[in-house]
Design a protein around this nucleic acid. Structure first.
Lengths: 352, 352
DNA sequence: AGCGAATATGTTATCGCTAACAAATTCGAT
DNA sequence: ATCGAATTTGTTAGCGATAACATATTCGCT
């Protein structure tokens, strides 16, 4: 099966030369067979493949990439992998890239700009064919690297700002505004906000900005808010909800807007456990549209962040640009998130 | 900032030679400065770093790796990224690798052996410094590749079987046995099983085997079972629970063992929503110990799969072997999962 | 000042593969 | 047979970095 018909364990890794010697043709011909490139007669093709299989040869992409200056990697740089949202983006990316020669390589930044910069540097040093990176906010150095890399760059998730090259996402300001409008339309007045203690989560910040902006237009403002960091989001949602409701017992809140579905689900459970009428006494809404919500006792209102679609579109942009290197670039795709009212947000009162 | 002080966009990617020319020293010296290797005077070091920064030079690891035959990548091959368990393993791996020069590269197999084989081949063609791969079951070809790669291999999650090199995990058979024993000890008799329709999830299969084995010793067997695939696990847990309970109304079940926490949580919610007394009328248990459970109205009994610890230990084995290439290898670490009784599994009746 | 040991820098030869071009072989049509 | 075109195979020269060795330079000490 490997290494000269069951001989000693391998010492030196195999190279093209080994296959070439074993099959009696030149290295170049072996290379051609293994890459399906150029004309090779059926006879030698079979001979070479047989030899390669017999030896257990695995090509060395490092050498191949250096020689051809083609690297079929796409760098994907995202803040986190543990909150449901980016895994789904990855699924979208994978779906599209599986149909090509490109392979994604993921780097995690933990929402830290300096970490992002370091990860980006590492990634670029592999000379990938493209970069998909979350967000529009980066350090100056990171922006310079991206600008100078000479490869397609797609910034994802967010389109509120100036992309370096291409961008795919939703407008989080608009998402915040839309949700605020729906809440106002449904007649809620005393609104609480619950979110993460994350000055660096720009998307959450933009949603918040859009949200308060629309409230302001209706002469409303956030009645109270609560922030968390770390721990089980579900549990935190529960705890924060308890805290904010207790704190406002005299002048009770009638709506809670959560910055993500997980804490929203926790809040929902708290309300149900404590006999609070949802959405009569109090309305609830989250953000993201995670599949998980389907299993809850009551369906939480949310807004879909189009994660799968974002992943797909971003990968498509890269794939297209790799195929057609002199295509223009600079494409911006803004997806439109839609509200899922679920069962925790009253519909707009019918107009007469 | 880049490319000759704000000139035209970059055409040809920068190389060591560019930095060398810009700083007036040899390429070798630049290389030494950039890698912090060998003696370089403070003066030239500063000069070189300045030039590199000024140009926006990013080293080419492809070329570096080929020349030094050292690739600081660790291939991590796992079945999925969307079910809470592997992201946590990744966190453990990352934690350890961040302290080294090694960088993880992830490949996803979707529980398909042929996909695993393909991903492995891709990964090995980058000549990584080590491989961390989930499970002990692989195709013959995959085993051959792993055996012949000449690098440290760590098979993770499971230790019920013969590893190729090293292994870190728990015994899933033992985990199944342990849970069965706890259930029997608590006095439950009519036990239902709910799991995934996944003939290729060997770990789940082994847990099931261990589980039934202990039941058999106590002259018990699974009273009924239910399987699912795809969709929201939480919802599926709810639906399967309803189905299995309805089907056994005449001779009701008194325990439900779920093959993962997510469907367990769905089942728990179903029971609570329908006024079923847990754990009095019926006991419930899952598997994995996901953090998520903390936020549930009642804490589900489960068994910790030691995911974080598995990731850490696996990465440590690789890191150690990379540092000391002639160390023996073949290390097997079996972690001991412990039962978390939560509030859905009665404790063993006190012995007199 | 003078000499060997450090310390700093430069040179040369790969690493394993592929692009580009060159040579050899096959083949059909005359 | 014979020639040119088409097909198949081989040769040569890097890709951009680093290892290993060679050559300056600097320095302390007698």
């Amino acid at each position: 099966m490997s290494q000269g018909s069951g001989n000693m364990p391998p010492k030196r890794p195999l190279t093209l030369r080994d296959v070439s010697e074993a099959s009696g043709v030149s290295e170049m011909t072996v290379s051609r067979v293994l890459r399906n490139r150029g004309d090779v007669s059926e006879t030698t093709r079979a001979k070479v493949l047989e030899a390669a299989r017999e030896l257990g040869y695995v090509p060395n992409k490092i050498a191949g990439a250096l020689a051809s200056s083609r690297v079929n990697l796409v760098a994907v740089i995202i803040p986190s992998m543990s909150n449901m949202v980016f895994p789904e983006v990855m699924t979208g990316i994978n779906e599209v890239l599986e149909g090509t020669e490109l392979q994604p390589v993921v780097g995690i930044t933990n929402y830290k700009p300096e970490r992002e910069e370091a990860v980006l540097y590492q990634m670029l040093s592999w000379r990938p064919s493209g970069v998909i990176i979350a967000g529009l906010e980066h350090t100056e150095a990171a922006k310079a690297m991206l600008g100078a890399a000479g490869i397609p760059i797609v910034e994802i998730m967010d389109t509120d700002g100036e992309p370096i090259d291409s961008a795919v996402g939703i407008s989080h300001r608009r998402a915040g505004r839309k949700m605020a409008q729906a809440i106002i339309d449904a007649g809620y007045k005393r609104i609480g906000f619950l979110g993460t203690k994350m000055p660096l989560d720009h998307r959450a910040r933009k949603r918040f900005e859009g949200f308060t902006q629309v409230l302001a237009k209706a002469k409303l403002e956030i009645a109270d808010s609560e922030f968390y960091s770390g721990g089980s989001a579900l549990k935190k949602g529960r705890e924060m909800t308890e805290a904010i409701l207790k704190r406002n017992e005299e002048n009770p809140l009638d709506f809670l807007y959560y910055s993500n579905d997980m804490i929203g689900a926790g809040g929902l459970m708290y309300c149900l456990d404590n006999g609070i009428d949802v959405p009569g006494q109090i309305g609830l809404a989250g953000f993201n549209g995670i599949e998980f919500l389907d299993g809850l006792p009551r369906k939480l209102a949310t807004m879909d962040a189009c994660r799968l679609e974002i992943g797909r579109a971003a990968a498509q942009i890269i794939a297209k640009r790799v195929e057609t290197p002199d295509a223009p670039g600079g494409e911006v795709i803004t997806l439109e998130p839609s509200i899922a009212y679920g069962e925790t947000l009253k519909r707009k009162k019918k107009l007469i």
